[in-house]
Design a protein around this nucleic acid. Sequence first.
DNA 1: ATCACGCTGTGAAAATAATCACATATTATT
DNA 2: AATAATATGTGATTATTTTCACAGCGTGAT
Lengths: 206, 206
Amino acid sequence: MIKIAENTIKRLIVYKKELNRLKAEGKKFIYSHVLAALSGSQPHLVRRDLMAVGYSGSPAHGYSVKELESSISDFLCSSRQVKVILIGIGNLGRAIIDYCHKQNPKIAISSAFDIDPNKINKEYHGVYCFHIDTARNYVIENEIKVAIITVPDSEAQTIATALSDAGIRGILNFTPGRLRVPENVYVENADMMLYLEKVIYFVQNV
Amino acid sequence: MIKIAENTIKRLIVYKKELNRLKAEGKKFIYSHVLAALSGSQPHLVRRDLMAVGYSGSPAHGYSVKELESSISDFLCSSRQVKVILIGIGNLGRAIIDYCHKQNPKIAISSAFDIDPNKINKEYHGVYCFHIDTARNYVIENEIKVAIITVPDSEAQTIATALSDAGIRGILNFTPGRLRVPENVYVENADMMLYLEKVIYFVQNV
DNA sequence: ATCACGCTGTGAAAATAATCACATATTATT
DNA sequence: AATAATATGTGATTATTTTCACAGCGTGAT
C-alpha cells in the first residue's frame, strides 16, 4: 500500500463529514474549491488528497457528492460497521456516547464499561454498561479492535494494558497521560487541555 | 516574530505537560532523548523545537526540568493567568470544567453560560453559570479572549457570531460544524468523532 | 592535568507536503 | 460544428519539516 500522509487522512475525514451534510441537504455536485472552502482546505489540496482515494470528478460538474462521499468512506473504513467500546462512564464518556449515537451510523459503541456499581447494568443512550473487569473478555469474544478511554488518569494505563493483551488495535485516549502499549496498538491522544493551550497560543501570538 | 510551525507548538505543549509531571516527581534534569521518549517525539526534533523557545541545556546534564518548563510555559503563554469562558453546560461542558480545574493552574474557566434555566445560577466545580444572553457583555467587560463552545450543533454559529462581535479572539469548538467567524478569530475544531475515525483508519490500514 | 565520553546546538541534507501551472476534458452557447 | 468558459488531474516546483552529522562543551575518570 502506498503511504498516505496523516494530514491527508485528517482532511479526508473532514471532507467526508462535509459531503454527508451536503448529501443530507440534497446537493448533487460540488467543485473542489467549494469543498475546500467548507473544509478549511485549499482546492489544490482537495484534488491532491482525492488522488489517494482514486475518485475522479468531471470538469463540468465537479464531484458527485454521493459518489465521492462513498468513495472516501470506503477508503477510510472498508467495513460495513465498526464496533467500538468505551471505558469510563463519566461526563465525558456520556457525552461521547450521545454524540457518536447521532453522528456516524458506521461507528457503533457496542458496550460501555465502568467500575462504579451505580453505573453498571444501566443504559446510556442505548449503550449498556458492564463491569470494567469484563471488558477484557468482551474484547476477545467480540473481536473488538477499537476502544475509547475516558477513565480517571490513574486507571488509564491499567485498562490500556488489559485491552492490549486482549487484542485491541487502536485506542482513543482522553486521558492526559501517555499510554505505554505494544507497537501494534495505535494510540490517538485527545487531551482537551492541549487543544485549549493551542488556542491560547495562537490568540496571544498571531 | 519568526514563524513557528504548528506542529512545533503542539509538541511544545506536550513537552511542557511531561516536564510538569517530572517536576512533580522531583526530577531535576532531563536529556532530549528521554523527553522525546516521554512525549512521543524524536531527540533531534526536541532540540530543534527548543531552538524556538530559546532555552539552552547543558551537554553534561541535559535540561533543567524546572527552567525548561518555565521557559516553554512563558513562550507558549506570556500572561500570568488566562481567563476562558465555556458556553454550554452539557456532559461535555462539565467534563471540561472538571478537567481544566485540576489540570492547568494558568488557565481558569472564569464563567460558564447556558440557556437552560435549570443550569443557570448554579456552580459546576466552582464555575458559576449565567444565562447565555449575558455572555456577550461578559466578554466585553472582562476582556475575555478565549471561549470553549460545547453547545448543541444548532446553536454553535449563533453564539460564535455573538462572541466574535464581542471581541473574542479564539474559540475551541467541540461542535461538528465549521464556524464562520471573522479573519482575526482563531478556531480550533475538536470534533471527537474525527479522532475516532482516525483511529479506525489506522487500525484498519497500517 | 588530561582524556574520553556523551550530550547539546545547529548548518546542511534529505524527505515530505503544499502549491503552481498547464494539458485535458466537458458542457453551454452561438 | 466550432468556440468559449471553466474545472479536473497531475508533473514540476517550491516551501516546509524532519533528520543527519558533527563541532564544541562540560563532566567525571584516570
